[in-house]
């Protein structure tokens, strides 16, 4: 057990290190601007006095490494500075939107994960039949479609033509839980479709790999019923790849959420990020990027740790 602890700790350390490198990248990328932030905000025709005032206000006269240190210590406490456009605190702008995004992502995950794993196992059992081939083409199509294509198809058929669900996923401030679920059903469904296709394919591949191994054949030959082969022989060994698949796809959700939020005008972090990029509001862009990158790294880390915990072979690296 001690070994496992050490390995997990090592992975965690590596994750924190990666995050630090990325924070450096995100912070100093803005320094690459021709001129500086003040010049970028005020434009070419700004007077020297205005530039100097804005630099003073943004604290640009302090050397960049010092500013980075302040920014990072602030970011850890949830303080990302103030927006260049509105002057609001970035932390308080992002806060409620982050909750909305997390709500949407977990909504999609709760539906997609069990469905994808079950379907993946099912398709793996039916491999090389016509169903498998149909599922293959369908999932490939879902993966290959841009998120906005799926989103607009759902809007066209489930919102405009039938009127079953609202096309614009506005969630009011004090809407109750069931209304929230109903209003954000279409964006969640869009993400479910994309992520589920990915997960199904990966689960199928993992299970098929397993079913080809000799000990499964042995179990079959000695007359173990099919369900028992799956549940008792295959599944314990399949957990590692499946956990991996789930974590990787949840990480994928993070990128998908940006486009989906824009399609459905959902008040989340993705929408905020896109607006901030268009307006060149750097503190918000930096904060959003850091949050997305951190979540991405965290989920990848979870995949690694999960794989170590469920696969004893990884605990004793050669």
């Amino acid at each position: 057990m001690n070994d496992v602890f050490k390995l997990v700790l090592k992975r965690l350390g590596l994750g924190v290190l990666t995050l630090l490198v990325i924070s450096v990248l995100i912070f100093f990328a803005v320094e690459l601007l021709p001129g500086d932030i003040a010049q970028a905000v005020l434009g070419q025709s700004a007077t020297p006095e205005n530039l100097a005032a804005l630099r003073e206000q943004l604290g640009l006269n302090v050397p960049a490494p010092v500013r980075y240190f302040h920014w990072l210590t602030g970011a850890i406490q949830g303080d990302f500075g103030t927006s260049l456009i509105t002057g609001d605190r970035v932390g308080s702008t992002i806060g409620p939107r982050l909750l909305n995004t997390l709500f949407l992502a977990s909504y999609a995950a709760v539906i997609a994960v069990p469905a994808a794993i079950l379907l993946g196992i099912f398709v793996a059992l039916l491999r090389n039949t016509i169903f498998d081939r149909v599922a293959n083409v369908l999932t490939l199509t879902a993966i290959s479609s841009p998120e906005f294509f799926l989103g607009y198809i759902l809007i066209l058929y489930l919102a405009v033509k039938t009127g079953w669900f609202p096309a614009i996923a506005s969630i009011g401030r004090n809407a109750d839980f069931s209304t929230m679920l109903y209003n954000s059903f279409l964006p969640a469904l869009t993400m479910v479709l994309v992520v589920m296709a990915h997960m199904m394919r990966m689960t199928r591949a993992a299970i098929i790999n397993l079913l080809a191994s000799p000990y499964i054949e042995m179990a079959r030959l000695k007359g173990v019923p099919a369900w028992r082969v799956i549940v008792h022989h295959a599944l314990p060994n399949a957990w590692a790849p499946i956990i991996n698949v789930v974590a990787l796809n949840l990480a994928y959700l993070i990128t998908g959420v940006v486009l989906v939020e824009v399609v459905f005008v959902y008040p989340g972090v993705g929408q905020l990020l896109v607006d901030a990029v268009a307006k060149r509001d750097f503190p918000i862009v930096q904060a959003c990027c850091l949050i997305f990158a951190a979540t991405f790294i965290l989920l990848n880390l979870a995949a690694d740790v999960g794989a170590i915990l469920t696969n004893p072979r990884l605990r004793h690296p050669k």
């Binding site: 490198v21 990325i22 940006v258 990027c289």
Partner: peptide
């Protein structure tokens, strides 16, 4: 490092700059 940042997010960061 590059692969540990989601691609769309990285692209948005760079394009904003």
């Amino acid at each position: 490092v590059i692969m540990s940042i989601p691609s769309l997010i990285f692209a948005l960061l760079m394009l904003s700059i």
